[in-house]
Design a protein around this nucleic acid. Structure first.
Lengths: 350, 350
DNA sequence: TTGAAAGCGTTACCAC
DNA sequence: GTGGTAACGCTTTCAA
């Protein structure tokens, strides 16, 4: 009988070569093979035989068995609450996940990705299996809901990093990683202040989203401190979808033309720009526009968009570092990390 | 002694409650708990005790142990070769992965995501461990390299779906899922034919990329068949980066102005549009522009972009279905799937 | 340097 | 309906 058991079509998985299959094939003991696989010293002569046997049998280690034995999973999960089924499509999220994934890969960790509708967050299967040593989460939805989800995450006991949240982590297993959206709002506000504006409209989606609050707060703070006469209005679009934003801005412009529109994200700013174009309002001549994120959208518009650049990739990478360190040392080195953002001036503000 | 062992900070992971911990706590056997967890019939009375014990101990099943026992991982991996570290940032990839992830989640499967530089593909850790029942892959780079990677993937023995590849799958464990880029090129060509063009420039990155070849082939085929007098040139940008494309198009426009520019993707088309703008060429009046993908970029430009819409999300979803069916039945129902694309006319072609 | 045995947490199988 | 036992593939421990 050969080392590999026959494939059984009724089984889900093809039977694969195991350590002992390789051992038999190479005429050595299991431990010798195991040592070889884990780069422990093995005599050159034996080493060669093992190497050949592995190649012949196409052996690859079974991570489940290894994990079970070591109580280490070498795997991290990320749950992303988003109302869009194409949750990775958000450039903030795609960059963040890329950064996290790359850092983990460099340490031979695996990243499990799962998106979930905000209201079904608790049902995400990734939360109900112990298969990851640690978790990351991006929450979404009304504050009360998020608070509950945050509390439930804490209760899981695993090391967890939550992105872009306002809540304080009360448990030693939870850390929060954010970008400085408050400062982003301030930076943009201070820049716009120089434009001697009298009226500003802040466009945001109806969705309760923590970063947006900070952006608006920073912006309003600057204007309020500088001059009480500047009129700052908030315009709420039914969603952050292009058409919704465009419509809401268009309707507003039909009534009056402000000096500036600041949108919660660049793509919303692009929608506002389109609305201006359709309303015959020239940007930046009649009206200036700015957004947040600084990913790619700012390049595509004409004029190019003034924006506040988000360090999304670094957010993911940073979370990875924090988590791995937590796993290695048993404690988070920091429980709250805030990365800086940076204003990038484009043509849309003159 | 309590059921849960003390946490040992030197260990990577907190010790968690096991089935037998719960069994002791509830005063029943391990099997009863196991049965309960897996929704097998358990007497109501016992059921309640188990339920409480689980809650008290915060028990969650250990997937490694389960996987080991069942030889089922309930996990699929995807390797994405990309020269950009923020590999998920490509909207085609982010949609594809979202579609795959959501389908798998709905069946309680997990998705492991790993990006890798094209030349380091073989080193991707996800390929060297058995921890996924099946794999998906997006290759990238010169054809010869991709062919070798394709062959190596085949050799892994796991069920595999490769996206957007030209190679025939010779092994029963490999399927290829693509979109009909050839037809996309043709559709766009046929539409442009009505514009009575005499000269067309196709802009593409230097990178060898299988979908692009098909798009160009489809496009050229239509023009060649319709009229040998139409001049079709290919303009190669050093990369698909915005600046690179913009520069290359600008340089070309300095020499001559074609009737149409077709770019390999919408973001490249946006770069071409910007180059026209800078060169004082009016779109679509002096020159028409079109791209491929139909994700979001087409909305942001002004004029909006004519494009060929890619079913990226469905590609991912379809691969998921194929893979799960393959795992269940032991054979792929189809070894080659091609999803249709669709022309979407915007303002950039008049 | 190599080998034998125990055990990680779970489930299939068979008794009761 | 419930419980005991063996086994999944691996690594740690201890002996040779």
């Amino acid at each position: 009988m050969k080392g590999i058991r026959e494939a059984d079509p009724s089984r889900r998985k093809l039977a694969r070569a195991t350590l002992s299959d390789v051992a038999k094939e190479a005429g050595v003991s299991v431990m010798t093979v195991s040592n070889f696989v884990r780069s422990k010293p093995v005599r050159v002569q034996t080493r060669k035989r093992v190497e050949e046997a592995i190649a012949r049998l196409n052996y690859r280690p079974n991570v489940s068995a290894r994990s079970l034995r070591l109580s280490e999973e070498y795997s991290v999960g990320i749950v992303i609450a988003d109302s869009d089924p194409a949750f990775l499509n958000d450039p903030f999220i795609s960059r963040l996940v890329s950064g996290l994934s790359n850092y983990l890969s460099s340490l031979d960790y695996t990243l499990d990705v799962q998106g979930v509708a905000p209201e079904r967050f608790e049902n995400a299967t990734i939360l109900n299996k112990v298969g990851n040593e640690a978790l990351c989460a991006i929450l979404c939805g009304p504050k009360a809901l998020r608070k509950e989800q945050f509390a439930n995450l804490t209760r899981l006991g695993q090391p967890i990093v939550v992105f872009q949240e306002v809540f304080q982590s009360t448990a030693p297993n939870v850390a929060v990683v954010s970008q400085d959206d408050l400062s982003g709002g301030k930076q943009l506000g201070q820049y716009l202040l120089k434009k001697r504006l009298r009226s500003v409209v802040f466009v945001r989606p109806a969705l309760d989203w923590c970063a947006l609050e900070q952006r608006e707060k920073g912006l309003r703070g600057v204007f309020a401190a500088a001059s009480p006469s500047i009129d700052v209005k908030t315009l709420i679009a039914p969603s952050e979808r292009f058409d919704d934003v465009q419509q809401v801005v268009k309707d507003h412009l039909a009534k009056r033309t402000p000096d500036a529109i600041v949108a919660a994200t660049d793509s919303m700013a692009a929608a506002a720009l389109k609305a201006c174009e359709l309303s015959g309002i020239r940007v930046p001549k009649d009206l200036v526009i700015a957004g947040f994120n600084g990913f790619d959208v700012w390049r595509y518009t004409s004029p190019t968009m003034t924006t506040v650049v988000s360090p999304a990739y670094e957010l993911g990478r940073h979370a990875g570092e924090l988590l791995i360190q937590r796993l290695k040392t048993g404690a988070f080195s920091k429980r709250h990390v805030v990365l800086p953002v940076r204003l990038q001036v484009g043509e849309s503000t003159g």
